[in-house]
Design a protein around this nucleic acid. Structure first.
Length: 104
DNA sequence: GGTTTGACGAGTT
DNA sequence: AAACTCGCCAAAC
């Protein structure tokens, strides 16, 4: 059943524990496509959302910055959601990958 | 079946 | 430090 690349991406994102964040490249790597970070990001855009079991808000850039224009109701909503899960943020507005990076 | 696109990443300027 | 460019690759047109 070779699910589409997207569905596989969702499956990996689904495994991200609470209070942790994973970069697009990280997710892509876990799915066996380390070069497909962009496709992962695009898959997130088309994800069913948290209601579908895909916490796309836990997926961030490799730098720890969030996607511009992200919205579950507002760009600041994602940060608020992550903080609520225990994710550490830096004054720059980026996620503290050093503490909140998803350890596989 | 070729072209365009894009929630990335790393390298340059 | 921030902005820009190039490369990668799957999905949509």
């Amino acid at each position: 059943m070779r699910e589409s690349f997207f569905e596989r991406a969702w499956d990996v994102v689904r495994q991200i524990p609470e209070g942790r964040v994973a970069s697009y490249g990280q997710v892509a790597r876990l799915m066996g496509a380390p070069r497909c970070a962009r496709q992962v990001g695009y898959a997130m855009h088309g994800s069913p959302g948290v209601a579908g079991g895909v916490p796309c808000h836990r997926v961030v850039f490799a730098d720890g910055s969030l996607a511009p224009g992200f919205a579950f109701g507002g760009p600041g909503e994602q940060r608020r959601m992550l903080e609520a899960e225990g994710v550490c943020f830096r004054p720059d507005g980026r996620v503290d990958m050093k503490k909140s990076a998803w350890e596989v």
